[in-house]
Design a protein around this nucleic acid. Structure first.
Length: 349
RNA sequence: AGGGGUAUCGCCAAGCGGUAAGGCACCAGACUUUGACUCUGGUAUUCGUAGGUUCAAAUCCUGCUACCCCUG
């Protein structure tokens, strides 16, 4: 339980269904947020309040060390390389659906349930398939693309078939204190931050030039790793030219140069991308090429594409060029209602 | 040293005697379990400066200052 509405209602529904439910809260980060508050404390307070309300025991576990070693380190390393990692995907793979589940099972649980918006099909063929959520606006399968069928074995997603509005309405009906609580955002367990400031605590600033593709210096930056391709805000470049906004077009980590373009974004649209490795949640498809839909970022409407398996990797060819494909993010592939899995984007062209 | 031109928000830039458009940047919200994108809202009592004309000036006149161009 995270202290939000989703996991609150999840616990309640299971209790209603006759399960013996225990609330398990996880803490993975100990620093305070930008406002000087420790949101984890408030969240656990909400967990306690909800658990008391529905009459179930609650516990707290701390995986801060493992989170740091298995998620955060990689996150920082990737940024240092000029890439754009996705810590929450790793967090699910390395923490939530790993030591956390293990811990729950060791406490005697038969199943672990979370408030994710997605579904799981424990199929007769022995595989556990990850399914899209009913509420396409809240679908969280993107973040679960690195899981394995094995990891989903003892998992339930009780609200995956509900709309967010239904969840809130039910939570309110049952009088759960978290019914109106705002959805959490920002890096999972770390929270909403001034991102550049946060990163600068782990990656020192390194000033350099901001240039256009033809080499003209148009500004200065604090460090190329703080920026992502396609980014508009935070460049501090204004005026001149055609009066249109400027966007990050590429990064040269070696020479510490941030390349930008004013108005014209045609150069950041690409139809092809490559993943050197690809995680199939269940099994590798038999055919080496197939039609699918795919996402290159969370909440992106699924895009029609053709997937081509190459060695351990996967190449995607989109029907329509995609804007700002970022190395380090995940390409997640779907066929109909099933999330097949995903891989880290290594190249685009 | 002469001649011409320009000086309006951090950057572009409207305005041409009637009481400061717009864009970019920036800030704040919204959206959002990454990073981004996007959307909405906010931001010059003041127009290089000092005077003058006028009921009224950023808009006209004069001095000064700065920068740009041309001629020496």
């Amino acid at each position: 339980m995270s202290g939000g509405v989703d996991s609150s209602l999840t616990a309640l529904l299971l209790k209603e269904q006759g399960f013996e439910v225990i609330g398990l809260f996880m803490r993975n980060w100990h620093e305070k947020d930008d406002g000087g508050c420790c949101t984890a404390d408030e969240d656990f307070y909400d967990v306690r309040s909800v658990c008391n309300n529905i009459g179930i025991p609650y516990y707290s576990v701390d995986f801060a060390d493992q989170y740091y070693d298995r998620v955060f380190k990689h996150f920082v390393d990737e940024y240092k390389k000029g890439r754009t990692p996705n810590p929450d995907v790793l967090c699910n793979k390395e923490i939530k659906f790993a030591p956390f589940v293990k811990h729950a099972l060791s406490m005697g649980a038969d199943y672990i349930a979370t408030g994710h918006y997605c579904g799981v099909l424990h199929a007769d063929d022995g595989y556990n398939y990850l399914l899209k959520a009913k509420d396409s606006n809240k679908d969280q399968t993107y973040f679960l693309n690195q899981l394995s069928s094995q990891q989903l074995d003892k998992v339930l997603f009780p609200i995956g078939g509900m709309e967010k509005s239904e969840v809130r309405a039910l939570a309110a009906k049952y009088g759960l204190s978290t019914a109106e609580k705002k959805d959490s955002t920002g890096i999972c367990f770390i929270g909403e931050r001034n991102f550049r400031k946060f990163l600068s605590e782990y990656i020192p600033m390194k000033e350099g030039d901001i240039k256009t593709l033809d080499g003209k210096v148009v500004g200065r930056h604090d460090g190329v790793f703080y920026y992502t391709v396609g980014q508009r805000k935070g460049l501090g470049i204004g005026g001149g030219g055609n009066g249109e906004p400027w966007f990050v077009v590429s990064k040269d980590v070696e020479n510490n140069v941030l390349y930008v373009s004013q108005g014209d974004q045609s150069m950041i649209y690409h139809s092809h991308l490559q993943c050197d490795g690809f995680n199939f949640i269940t099994y590798r498809p038999k055919q080496n090429q197939f039609r699918c839909t795919a996402r290159i970022r969370h909440r992106q409407p699924e895009q029609d594409a053709t997937a081509i398996l190459r060695g351990n990797g996967l190449e995607l060819v989109f029907d329509k060029p995609q804007r700002a494909i970022a190395e380090g993010q995940y390409a997640v592939v779907y066929v109909d209602n099933v999330c097949l899995g995903g891989g880290v984007i290594e190249r685009k062209f």
